[in-house]
């Protein structure tokens, strides 16, 4: 589950990582109001699930309300690599002294968590990896031990960053690992991670992918789920997914296969629920949550009963 930048920042902030305050808005007037509230100069940033926003004109600096209005008007509705911008994030512009890169992800070969830290921030890490691989300091973190303070310090030292910022960096990286690990992220990336002109370490961007398998143990992931971009087929699959799998955790191939002679009207069987429909006990639970009783169900108007249903009800067997 990919988070938008502002969601990633909120996710980071919940683990104590310093990020810029701001507001996510979806129309021009709200954008100007948000810019007034956070204080000029502000950055207007397109919120889409795709990289390269800056080059596509999706990130603009505004020094006053007029500029904020112009940029918000330009960016809202902009098409960035096929993604239409519906939301912009307005934050106070930071005074940047230095830009770094940091990320945590799972190294599937090593079966450990891989941390990458580089003094070359603000550019694509894939480019750095090809052109200047020595500029990336890597560590492999054993999931059982977690990121130790000692390991973190050695890592920061290996990356040749500003020595004055070491304490701030160790603190932020430790928190970032916690966010990645306790937050059940597949990826937690900050690019750029900045040192401000007054010496603070700060996450200026946020790229976070969460592990949907872990949703059962995190409250509030529904808001992230709601902003996922899916095409028609994926949407249909997604609508059916949780109904089939539920939080009990078994996979599709378990639930869909019914044993022969099993007296249960399951999905796709006579009397069973429709595709995408919740099972009966969960429909009931949902009705209760919505304040509707079982008897509030609107009966089907006469004349709309399908023949096969009529036959099943009135001529069983």
């Amino acid at each position: 589950m990919d988070l938008l930048e502002y969601q990633g920042k909120q996710f980071f902030a919940s683990f104590g990582i310093p990020t810029s305050d701001g507001q996510a808005v979806s129309d021009v007037d709200a954008a100007v109001a948000a810019a007034d509230a956070v204080g000029y100069p502000v950055v207007v940033k397109a919120q889409v699930h795709v990289g390269g926003r800056g080059k596509a004109g999706g990130v603009k600096l505004a020094n006053n309300a007029d500029e904020a209005r112009t940029h918000a008007t330009d960016i809202l509705g902009l098409d960035i690599k096929g993604h239409i911008v519906r939301t912009v994030w307005i934050e106070h512009a930071s005074d940047i002294a230095t830009e770094y890169y940091v990320s945590f992800t799972l190294d599937r070969s090593a079966k450990k968590h891989l941390g990458m830290l580089s003094a070359e921030g603000g550019v694509e890490i894939e480019t750095v990896a090809v052109e200047n691989p020595d500029a990336i300091a890597k560590i492999w973190v054993d999931p059982v031990d977690g990121l130790t303070d000692e390991q973190c310090r050695a890592w920061v030292a290996a990356a040749n960053l500003d020595p004055d910022a070491t304490e701030g960096l160790v603190d932020l990286l430790t928190k970032l690992y916690t966010a990645y690990s306790d937050g059940d992220a597949d990826l937690a990336e900050v690019n750029p991670l900045i040192i401000t002109t007054d010496g603070r370490v700060h996450a200026l961007d946020a790229k976070v992918t969460l592990d949907a398998n872990a949703q059962y143990r995190h409250d509030g992931w529904e808001v992230y789920d709601a902003t996922q971009v899916r095409d028609e087929r994926e949407e249909a699959a997604h609508a059916k997914g949780p109904a089939v799998r539920g939080s009990r955790g078994f996979g599709r191939h378990h639930r869909q296969r019914r044993r022969p002679g099993h007296e249960h009207a399951g999905r796709g069987q006579p009397g069973g629920r429709l595709g995408g429909q919740l099972p009966r006990h969960r429909r009931r639970r949902q009705r209760r949550r919505d304040g509707r009783g079982a008897r509030d169900h609107q009966p089907r108007p006469p004349g709309q009963v399908h023949l096969h249903q009529h036959l099943r009800w009135h001529h069983p067997g």
């Binding site: 799972l106 079966k111 450990k112 968590h113 054993d142 999931p143 059982v144 690990s181 059940d184 597949d186 592990d211 398998n213 872990a214 143990r217 799998r245 955790g249 078994f250 996979g251 599709r252 191939h253 378990h254």
Partner: peptide, 19 residues
């Protein structure tokens, strides 16, 4: 057999068993 185990759990018990 179970499907849907969080990746962080898998990485954890893989390394825990190895050790």
């Amino acid at each position: 057999i179970t499907e849907g185990v969080p990746a962080h759990d898998e990485a954890w018990f893989y390394n825990k068993l190895k050790r």
